[in-house]
Design a protein around this nucleic acid. Structure first.
Length: 620
DNA sequence: GCGGATCAC
DNA sequence: TATGGTGATCCGC
């Protein structure tokens, strides 16, 4: 609400001017280790340090925009008649019942969150930092602050120069991701023992499905959490906090409750969940950020999760179905409970901030550097994409994005630079402080999950732990190309090249994928002999049968995967105890992969492809 | 498909 | 002096 205009309006008020109160930062929202902080003082300092800056002005502009949005929603709200409301109440009630019916209390999820991770790691490698206020980051931006620094109001995402004002003795330590990755790996070794399929959310957070381990060892989740945290400490020297709950959304909320170095268990009981959720501020829920909280509070007076249900008719009337579903789920304390589904990345990008400049030569030079790096990253992962997006942040902090979807998939430095330069050229002259290049990998329609929707903070799944259901089968001749690296990685992780799974067939599989990549991405002919005949089965498909050839490759891939699975399964079924775990995803992926050979639910036999030659315009 | 925006870490 | 980088998703066109 309090926008720039409101700020100026109150500055000269009789009842004392406190303009800083209306500057909406995220720095004072309740965070672990922030109890007892003089929030007013922090808020005032942040305001004083920011006031008048380009950044601040942009924040004001954004704030004004949100106010407009709120006004618009209010207007719509006022227009609702009693009849409308009773209608939407019915719709909402039914939807809430449907969602309630999906409640799953059969799984036990644990969310682990390392305490002040980067800062804790830095303190391990330099113990003289212990007990002193310290932040990882720079004068421009802080990544993490230790608990001593948090007492001063210093926290992540705060610029360092403001942090130093709040805490003059603050020690700054530059980020060192190699170090954090190393320690992250150590923690993951522990996580794996409790759930080999755990979902890494970031370097310092993970979700574990501990249902099985509780059952197998016949102990309570609470004990598992204690034990896991002890192990993490013993093996890394780092403390963490844990939350246990029937779903991931709640587990995440729970891990924050007794932070640092604590845990909280929410039992798998509907009443317990409803009680827990009833007074919980919506801002605690992953996916509800500063803006959403602001809007829901300003328009509907919603503060707690429970109120999401009380205002259900309004939410139903004024938001999209998927958004309303998400809000209702929050009110019901529902969240995802399914086993981790590994997803392929959808985009790859890089961006750099520099001191703002209008110098076009310089800007093109920056762009060239980004294109170079992006291309390298893409090739490292074997990715191609056909939608290129250029993002610019102007010296006034306004953000512009310009995108183009190309006919061909690209990954080379030259291609990226050529097209990105066209996009940049159209924007010049312009004073720019940040450039980002982004290539999106594929486009496919996702079905929405009614429970978490796409709203909740979802997990960046670990790469290479299985198959995704999507993307591989996306349209076009290059879909498989664009995912080649991820496919390969997934296969190699599912069928590791070393160790007990070593087998020449694995290499063949890699070759097949390689074939597919070359064939579809570069339009070369590894799989297609003389650019005409399939090297594996001899079927003849001319190059112009682009889609058919892709499907054909996919057919062989699926077939191959199936063979691999049965062979490896045979060999490991005797001794491989962890196989079931590994296989869980593999089986899914293969069945999904098989869908590549299906269209509209009907399976197509290999013979089908022989008919294609003479019937290009087949019924689809 | 595009562009603006939100969100998380 | 000075407010990040990467990835995902949603809404309204």
């Amino acid at each position: 609400m309090a926008t720039a205009t409101a700020t100026e309006g109150t500055e000269t008020n009789d009842d004392g001017a406190r303009p800083w109160q209306s500057y909406h930062t995220v720095y004072t929202t309740a965070k672990a280790g922030m109890d007892g902080v003089d929030k007013e003082k922090v808020q005032r300092t942040v305001y004083e340090m920011s006031k008048g800056s380009k950044y601040f002005q942009n924040e004001e502009r954004k704030d004004a925009f949100i106010t407009q949005k709120i006004d618009k929603i209010r207007t719509q709200c006022d227009k609702l008649t009693q009849a409308d409301l009773s209608h939407f109440q019915k719709v909402a009630d039914r939807r809430i019942l449907e969602l309630e019916a999906l409640r799953d209390l059969s799984r036990i999820w644990l969310h682990v969150d390392m305490d002040a991770f980067y800062a804790a790691v830095e303190t391990l490698s330099n113990p003289t930092l212990k007990g002193k206020p310290m932040a990882v980051g720079s004068m421009s931006m802080i990544s993490t602050a230790n608990y001593e620094a948090r007492k001063f109001g210093v926290r992540a995402a705060m610029p360092g120069f403001i942090a130093r004002k709040l805490c003059p003795e603050l020690i700054f330590v530059p980020t060192d991701f190699k170090k954090y990755t190393h320690y992250s790996d150590l923690t993951r070794t522990v996580f794996r023992r409790y759930d080999p399929n755990f979902m890494a959310a970031s370097l310092d957070e993970a979700y574990l499905d501990i249902t099985e381990v509780c059952k197998r060892r016949n102990i309570k989740s609470e004990e598992i959490a204690e034990e896991l945290r002890t192990s993490v400490y013993e093996e890394t020297g780092l403390t963490c906090s844990a939350g246990v709950a029937p779903n991931r959304l709640l587990a995440k909320v729970c891990s924050d409750i007794n932070k640092p170095n604590g845990q909280y268990v929410l039992p798998n009981d509907r009443m317990a969940v409803m009680t827990f959720i009833s007074s919980l501020p919506i801002r605690k829920i992953g996916g509800i950020g500063k803006v959403t909280e602001h809007i829901l509070k300003a328009v509907f007076g919603i503060n707690t999760c429970e109120q999401m249900l009380e205002k259900a008719s309004y939410l139903c009337a004024l938001f999209s179905q998927s958004t309303a579903d998400f809000f209702f789920s929050v009110g019901l304390g529902l969240g995802k409970t399914d086993s981790p589904e590994v997803r392929f990345r959808k985009s790859i990008s890089n961006e750099r901030t520099f001191s703002a400049t209008e110098d076009e030569v310089l800007l093109y030079k920056k762009l060239a550097e980004l294109a170079e790096m992006l291309s390298t990253d893409m090739q490292k992962e074997g990715l191609c994409g056909r939608t290129l997006t250029l993002k610019l942040k102007t010296s006034s902090f306004e953000v512009r994005t310009r995108a183009m979807t190309l006919r061909k998939y690209i990954s080379s430095r030259e291609d990226i630079l050529k097209h990105a330069s066209e996009l940049l050229k159209a924007e010049l002259p312009l004073s720019v402080r940040l450039i980002e290049t982004d290539v999106s990998i594929g486009s496919c329609q996702r079905s929405r999950d009614p429970v978490d929707g796409n709203h909740s903070s979802d997990v960046n799944c670990q790469s290479g732990t299985g198959w995704s259901s999507e993307e591989i089968q996306t349209s076009g001749n290059n879909a498989s190309c664009s995912n080649y690296g991820q496919v390969k990685e997934a296969v190699e992780s599912t069928f590791p090249i070393q160790g007990q799974f070593e087998d020449t067939s694995t290499l063949n599989l890699s070759n097949l994928l390689e074939d597919e990549r070359l064939n579809s991405c570069e339009d070369k002919t590894m799989l297609w002999l003389n650019d005409y005949k399939c090297s594996l089965c001899g079927i003849e498909l001319p190059p112009s049968f682009v889609e058919d050839r892709l499907e054909h490759s996919d057919f062989h891939l699926a077939e191959k995967l199936q063979k691999e699975e049965s062979r490896i399964h045979q060999r490991t079924s005797v001794s491989g105890q962890s196989w079931d775990q590994k296989n869980r995803i593999t089986r899914e992926s293969i069945s999904k992969k098989q869908k590549l050979s299906q269209k509209e639910g009907s399976y197509r036999p290999i013979d089908y492809f022989f008919l294609l030659k003479s019937n290009k315009n087949r019924p689809s």
